[in-house]
Amino acid sequence: MSSTEHEAFLRDLREKSLRQQEQFIGNIKQRLGRSGQGGEPPAHPFKGAPDFWQEFELKQDERVNLFMDNWKKAGGHAVQLRTMEEAKRFIVQLSKDLSAKQLLIQNQEELHAMELDRSLNGAEVSVWHQQQGLSVAAGADIGVVVVDYAAAYTGSIIVTSSPDKGRSVSLLPTVMIAIIPAERLYTRVGQVLAHFNGSIREQMPAGIHFISGPSRSADIENDLTIGVHGPGIVYALVVTNE
């Protein structure tokens, strides 16, 4: 299939779609008893969480404790560390303990600064790269990410995609290590969502992923199984930078 033929195929679909849209939306309007264009945005008085919830706010040490508590309850491992240097030592030790052969890190400043390859003999450290990222991720034992945000109340980390941050790094390896700078840890999910609310569309990442523990399933006789498709072993390293 040549690319021009494919473009023609998509163009045909688009024309058909535009024709059908009129009918589709027209039918909805008619069923709702509305006529005309009516392009004005409707007033939305019940937007978002109830007011009392918007005032709910924890102090940083409470946030850290609640986050770690939730993460552990979901079946993950969580530690509180003071510096990125401590985080580096933790990653090196864990890689040795697990006899990891392949580490994959996001192309992030904080991770480059760790120079993990210098401290790890016998393990290969790859950096996420847009060309062959997926195949490297498929073979990696450990994926390391620095999170964009975290939410304490649900015990969630939030990672977003970009040319430097692959979606696969937090998904394909057997083990995931997430570094959470404490200042990116919020109390509520809503505080994280607010970053995307009303965003300029061009600046939206293609993938926004909330992760709240190891991959799990209870589909076989309600028996909890960990690591069904995503990483079954997940570490959260909360770095307080004191």
């Binding site: 909330f210 709240s212 523990g213 995503g230």
Partner: peptide, 9 residues
């Protein structure tokens, strides 16, 4: 929250 909640744009 479910283990994964993904927003795809």
């Amino acid at each position: 929250l479910t283990v994964y909640m993904s927003g795809i744009t």
